[in-house]
Design a protein around this nucleic acid. Sequence first.
DNA 1: TTGAAAGCGCTAACAA
DNA 2: TTGTTAGCGCTTTCAA
Lengths: 347, 347
Amino acid sequence: MRDVALLARVSNKTVSNVVNDHPHVHPETRARVQRAIAELGYRPNLSARGLRSGRTGVIGLAVPDLRQTYFAELADAVLAAAERRNLGVIVGQVGVDREHEIAVLANGLRQTDGLLFSPEKLGTEDRGLLDGVEYPLVLLGERIFGGPTDHVTMHNVEAARAAVEHLVGLGRRRIAVLGAHPDHRSGQLRPSDLRVRGYREALAAAGLPEDPRLEREVAPWLPEDGAAATRRLLAEGIEVDAIFTLNDTLAVGALRALGEAGRRVPEDVAVIGFDDITLGRFTLPSLSSIDPGRDEIAETAVAMLVERIAWGAGSGHAPRLHKAAFRVVARESTVGPGASAHPAGTA
Amino acid sequence: MRDVALLARVSNKTVSNVVNDHPHVHPETRARVQRAIAELGYRPNLSARGLRSGRTGVIGLAVPDLRQTYFAELADAVLAAAERRNLGVIVGQVGVDREHEIAVLANGLRQTDGLLFSPEKLGTEDRGLLDGVEYPLVLLGERIFGGPTDHVTMHNVEAARAAVEHLVGLGRRRIAVLGAHPDHRSGQLRPSDLRVRGYREALAAAGLPEDPRLEREVAPWLPEDGAAATRRLLAEGIEVDAIFTLNDTLAVGALRALGEAGRRVPEDVAVIGFDDITLGRFTLPSLSSIDPGRDEIAETAVAMLVERIAWGAGSGHAPRLHKAAFRVVARESTVGPGASAHPAGTA
DNA sequence: TTGAAAGCGCTAACAA
DNA sequence: TTGTTAGCGCTTTCAA
């Protein structure tokens, strides 16, 4: 920088002003400086800038596991949103255990300006941990409601309800749900608990009885778990004409188990998932799902974090809650071949 | 840090020594400093450390697109390998266009110690760009062979050949390949070109004739492309008893198209993919594939990059090439139900 | 084994 | 509109 200043015959400060697009720089001076920058191949040292300004231009994104398609696609969307704002993103995976998540919450992800955190193990009971957080933080997902931070989430209850109403509207009456948490009476607010609630609301609204044998506890939400749960369901001889899986990877397993058992989808059993992952368009049959508004979630979360960073620590701004709009995406697994996605959306 | 030093009644330097686990610190002094650190909740400022030492403790990972399952799973493995070494990872997506890839190559991903780069658009003809790179760089994938950098890749030719030999071993004679690059006579060395070469070698070794109508150009490698290519293949009435798709997402689409057309897999048409993505175990039928050694690739690449970083710039160390071991993973789409993965591996 | 001093490259605050 | 000064927090060098 010193060299650039010398070559352009200006001071350090002027170089800084040009680099940072400050106003009040004479066009001619600016041009001279830019020529010097190009000539010397000067590139600002971001560590020094970070040290001086207290800003790194990098945010953290902590997700449980990129191998889960939902999180990979979420990370993709967050990266895009951050790039639009010229921010770098340090990605960390924290799903292994509780201790790891607590450590990340305590420290953030290295030297960053703020953190987008999608916890998996931490729950409402850990809300107190959030009070100790001194950096800008935006929570993603459903864990830890009511804490002192911004929170971006989806309409779990309403979307699940819409999914089941979609099945009811197609005449289905024996609707199973796969993916309830083994511990789902504990008063927690996991995605699974909320989605099961939406399922029950839809049954109630349609005048259909709840049947405990149709509410299947499944964890984790991987294809093999969906397949195993579906096999068990069929083996028990329970009458079923539709399955609502709480995410799409469970649904992939369910489709597989139904195929093995010779059940036709959707004629014998309709299937709808949740997340609208890309691959769902290409299963056989293609998978109906809930589009949870992933891009909106990512964009909103990054925007909120950037605002918090600009406000500075301890600004006392009230925590905000944003719920993204969702859509029911009807494909072959519920409405059969020739179906086109009909946006039965809401928000 | 100054506060810690005062509280522990030592100098800055001693605090620094303790924080960095230097030897030659008196145990008692160390304990006193650590107590002070805990009491004050001191955490080193990584920007300052980076400014002073020239190291940031962060590496960059540039991949084309996290929504492609292969890259999401690769990123997962790289993150894990980096975390073992206490390195942060800034992830960037660069697949949009050539200009973007060139920009990333010129600058790295913000302030990092080095870059793992998996280019998509840049090719052997851009090798010259690598000469201008002044930071530690390790290339992933097949583009840009023969440049002056370390390179971690897979046995594309051999693995593709093994996949086709697997099909031949099952008695298949009319084997199509999906995913050749439209421009594959150009002498480029894309993954697709190498895998097609392996396909041809296997045919030749088995005494089977090449048939241009069986070599299908498909790009990009998304499920919809695989489905479309398969539909075209069937529509043309070409006799086929096996399909080798150059990646697994193409295979998912192929399975779908075959199912639509009423062809049984593997009885009528066997299918094998490449990448061994997680979901492949749960398609119906489950998908045979090539496990390309993803964890080995990630671990080796990070290790190489860390070495280059330690050596310092312009160390003149010769470029290295590492090819990871692969395995043929046989599942239902080639050997039918009841199949168990038989490791026909090599390296 | 520990301390003192210098300075990494940049920007904030102030001055001209 | 531009320049001067100071210092962000750490590690390095050299000395004790």
